[in-house]
Simulated assay, not measured.
Amino acid sequence: MRNIADTIKRLNASRTLKSSPLPRNANTRLQPMAEFGQNPGSLLAWIYIPTNFKPGSPLVVVLHGCTQTAAAYDHGSGWSDLADRYGFALLFPEQQRSNNPNLCFNWFAAADTTRGQGEVHSISQMVVSLTHRYCLDRTNICVTGLSAGGAMAAAMLATYPEMFKAGAIIAGLPFGTASNVPEAFDRMRGHGIQEGRILAEKVRQASNHQGPWPAVSVWHGTADRTVDPINMEAIIGQWWHQHDLKDAPRITSQSQRHQCRTWSDNAGITRVEAHTISGMGHGTPIKPGASGLGTPSVFMLDVGISSTWHIANSWNLIGESEIPPVEVAVTSCPPGARDESTRQVNRPVRGVIEDALRAAGLMK
């Protein structure tokens, strides 16, 4: 664990991020959702219902990152633009500064990540209310988020697994990996991360749900200096064990810098997938322009890859294919064989990252 001086330094850096420029009133199409039941987490709620919406449509819950607002994240990611094309509904929970001065969801606080309490309960109440109000498909609800929002998406998948068909965690952390601010910073740096079996047990203890479990997609840049890429491997291990998967991954090459690993169950259905973006820092990968989605801004990174499109496509919200993947059989060991104990965690961070990159096929 770092010393107190290092913790103070990082806290000061996070306060500096608070003043980073964000698009103001970037997307006025989002509408406030004033009433949605209990709100112990004191969150705000915004929604987007496209004009071509029909009852029985899917719902996507989108969780912004630190220093962002719901409107800013939608403007950067392009989710409402995609909803316009395909007619699904959107819910954007939003943090308040009274809860967290940097507008981070409190993914590391037990009071906000325990079923029936705090922020996770507020979000679940939003989902229930919106689903009832617009007659949404209760079997087709997904959640995604960036950074702290990604970690909170992981918390939603763990605490309310019966509510979600799938989730996508972008530059986030596994559920239950930290319980206070110093631990949160340590995990972000890649320190003290537990093995997949232990992390999976935390998911099992988060609710009385016995399955089936949501499918999980993980996105991370290899040059992320805010949330260490080893967290991606930890999330994979957590849900690989939770789904009780047996196979090694298959690698799909979407482009030279975008590689996807997928793990399937005995029926051949993908349950866990991991998207590695070579050279990308901390943020959501987007692809602006006529053929893409999103607008570059703080933590919205133009790398020529639209995570929004790929995530929606993996959830069957889009009925077409963008780039035919090239599949390559992989013989490497599955996550269960890689994280037998805290062996990786206790190694130098550089070595852990290199192992993760080798596992992704990005380093020899």
Rank of each mutant, 00 (worst) to 15 (best):
181 V>R: 07
77 S>A: 13
116 G>L: 09
176 G>C: 09
118 G>K: 00
95 Q>C: 02
146 L>A: 06
93 P>K: 09
90 L>S: 10
179 S>A: 12
119 E>H: 12
153 A>P: 03
148 A>L: 05
170 I>W: 05
162 E>G: 00
79 W>Q: 04
79 W>V: 04
155 A>T: 08
80 S>T: 14
148 A>F: 06
122 S>G: 11
163 M>A: 06
114 T>I: 14
156 M>P: 02
135 C>H: 15
88 F>R: 06
166 A>C: 14
184 A>D: 03
162 E>A: 00
180 N>R: 08
102 N>Q: 13
177 T>K: 02
159 T>A: 12
144 T>Y: 06
134 Y>T: 01
138 R>I: 11
144 T>W: 08
98 S>L: 07
86 Y>E: 14
173 L>S: 13
151 A>M: 10
125 Q>D: 11
143 V>C: 09
115 R>K: 15
80 S>Q: 08
165 K>Y: 09
167 G>I: 11
182 P>Q: 10
99 N>W: 00
95 Q>K: 01
140 N>G: 11
77 S>Y: 02
147 S>R: 07
115 R>V: 12
98 S>G: 11
94 E>W: 01
103 L>T: 04
169 I>V: 15
73 Y>C: 02
72 A>L: 02
144 T>V: 15
69 T>K: 11
97 R>M: 03
67 T>Q: 04
148 A>D: 04
129 S>T: 15
118 G>Q: 04
164 F>A: 04
120 V>A: 05
181 V>I: 14
159 T>C: 13
137 D>K: 08
93 P>R: 09
78 G>N: 06
175 F>S: 01
105 F>I: 01
139 T>L: 01
142 C>P: 01
101 P>F: 03
99 N>A: 12
70 A>V: 03
68 Q>G: 01
161 P>W: 01
113 T>I: 14
92 F>Q: 03
94 E>A: 11
83 A>Q: 09
165 K>S: 13
96 Q>N: 12
148 A>C: 11
158 A>C: 10
80 S>H: 08
149 G>K: 04
100 N>D: 14
115 R>A: 14
170 I>R: 06
133 R>I: 05
167 G>A: 09
88 F>W: 15
132 H>T: 14
173 L>T: 12
143 V>D: 03
170 I>L: 13
143 V>N: 01
175 F>H: 13
93 P>D: 09
103 L>D: 08
127 V>F: 02
120 V>C: 10
124 S>A: 15
113 T>G: 05
108 F>G: 00
76 G>D: 08
122 S>P: 02
117 Q>D: 15
166 A>Y: 04
145 G>S: 12
66 C>R: 03
105 F>V: 01
125 Q>I: 08
